[in-house]
Structures are given as structure tokens and as C-alpha cells.
Design a protein around this nucleic acid. Structure first.
Lengths: 148, 148
DNA sequence: TTGATTTCTGTGCATATACACATATAATAC
DNA sequence: GTATTATATGTGTATATGCACAGAAATCAA
């Protein structure tokens, strides 16, 4: 086997990759949430944002992005979509530099309707793990975050 | 506290969410790979695809999508980008219905150059966990995938 | 106060992700 | 052999993600 072929071997190009495995698991979980949320017209990736706005309103784009550890411009566009959907709106109280968002009545109602659904999926998730396993998983996730 | 306010409380809208935590960890890890790969012009999400093409060439879009557990049309577009970048090309041997891809010389060279970089990041990752922790994490990830 | 710096946001661009729909080819049933 | 079904791919649309760049507003230093 040539050196080149060795580099292309399964061993070299596809060792068990912890990140791929984590991404795949997350992917399937996200899909489960998405399917459960579909009748409500909200996506799984929007739900944490809606919750964060609900808890912290009035809140700036930057604050939401920081809290959810997401990129700022991404959050900016997500909030635009959510505003278009009528779940949140701009708060006119905001000062010149920043933009503040608050929950609308429609957004509040959506949360109320969807929380039980969210609970159901979480229940399914949690039933896959014991309490100890859950704690351990969170610990390991935190350890991994440290490499950044 | 009204019933509505209770529903918007931190407890209800943001219990520790295992999926969010996993996604965040993956996010940071992916970012570490992306930064390491940047000088080579390939993204972290493309690397597993390149490796899969290398191992299984000639290979169809469907086969790659299945192996990497990703959506087919997504993989179709990813492969287009990678073809545009000159790392892979269509194999004219393909039958009418399917499209086959093979690695180009440029793709092979890229893999050879980038594998050590990939190893470095993986090393950093692995050093955050013990061998037991790693095994456990993989086990837990697999348990979670079962909810889909 | 003025000039430099920081902070908050928007925008352009490329890629990624998911789903629904459309098309073409292959396989199968009869 | 033709009709049906299954398989492989492409495309449209919406959203998501990340980065670089740009402009406006606030802050700070002198």
C-alpha cells in the first residue's frame, strides 16, 4: 500500500469522530422537535430565541445572541423572521444605537400552546437517559466546549 | 404571579436543554476545525464528505448522503461546491440514473496536506476527555439518536 | 469639545439545511 | 412489452450560519 493510499484509508479519513457523532445526535433530536412544532409554524431553532425574548424583554439583538451563544448577525436575521411572523415586535423605547424587541400577544399565545409539546419531546429525550447519564453528558459537553 | 407569567418563567422556557448544550459544544468544536482548515480553503463540514468520497470512490450522491446521515439534496449541493473547488469530479462511468463522483488529484493533495491539521484539532479535543469519557459520550449520543 | 475607539446593527456573499415538488431512469408486475 | 412503482437527482423556497465590511451612535481620552 502506497503512502498516499494509506492517507486515504478508512483509518486515516474516518476515525470515530466525536464531533460528527454529537452533531448527528443533535440533528435527530432537532428533527424530532421540528416535527412536533410543525403544526404551530415555528422551527426548533426559533423556540429558544422566543423563550429568551419572553424572559428578558425588552431585549437587544446582542443580548439574545450572547445568551444563546450564537452569532450576532445570524440572530439579527432570525429576529427579523420572528417579527415577520408576528411573535415579537420592536420596542419603540429603544435608544438610537440599539434595537429592542418585546413579545407580542401572538408570541405569548404561541409559547403557551407549544410548551406542552416541547415538554413531550423532552420527556421522550429524557427517557432515553438516566438522571446520572444526563448530568454526565452535560459535564462532558462543557469539557469539550473548552477547546474553543 | 399569573398563570401566563408562570409559563414565561425561566423554569418553563429554559430548563437545561440537553440538545442546546450538545449543539453548542458541537458548534465550538466545528469552529475550531474551521479555523484550522481556513488556510486550506475547505470547511469543516466539507471534510467528512471529502473523506467519504476518497474512501468510496466512485460513489453516488445517495451513497455519500446515507453514509454521513445527511439529507440528499443538501449533499447534492455540497458535492457541487466541492466539484467547483476542484476536489472531486464526475466519473463518466456512471449509468444514466445516477451520478458518480471521484477524487481529483487536487482533492487527494488537499487530504494529504490537511490530515495532520485535522489530527492536531482532534488531539486537542481528545485531551479534554479521558478514554472512558470519550466512550461514554459516544454511547450517550447513540442512546439519544434513538428518539428519532 | 473634538478626535479616536468601542459598541450595535445592517448587508453582501457563500454555504448549509430541510422540505416539497418535478423529472428521468431503472426495475418490476402483469 | 407496457404500465406501475421505486430510485436518483435536480430545483425552488425559506431559513440558518459565518465572516467581512460598512455605517451610525455612544464612549472615552486629550
Amino acid at each position: 500500500m502506497s503512502e498516499t493510499d494509506e492517507m486515504l484509508s478508512a483509518e486515516a479519513t474516518s476515525p470515530v469522530c466525536i464531533n460528527l457523532q454529537m452533531m448527528r445526535s443533535s440533528h435527530y433530536i432537532l428533527k424530532a422537535y421540528d416535527e412536533a412544532y410543525r403544526p404551530f409554524g415555528i422551527r426548533a431553532t426559533q423556540m429558544p430565541v422566543l423563550g429568551a425574548v419572553a424572559r428578558r424583554q425588552p431585549v437587544t439583538i446582542r443580548q439574545i445572541a450572547d445568551e444563546l451563544e450564537s452569532e450576532r448577525s445570524v440572530m439579527s436575521r432570525k429576529l427579523q423572521v420572528m417579527e415577520k411572523n408576528g411573535w415579537i415586535r420592536e420596542d419603540p423605547e429603544a435608544s438610537g444605537k440599539e434595537k429592542m424587541f418585546v413579545l407580542t400577544r401572538k408570541g405569548k399565545e404561541l409559547i403557551q400552546k407549544i410548551l406542552p409539546v416541547r415538554m413531550d419531546v423532552q420527556q421522550r429525550l429524557m427517557s432515553a437517559l438516566t438522571r446520572d447519564e444526563l448530568d454526565l453528558l452535560l459535564t462532558l459537553c462543557n469539557k469539550l466546549k473548552a477547546i474553543s
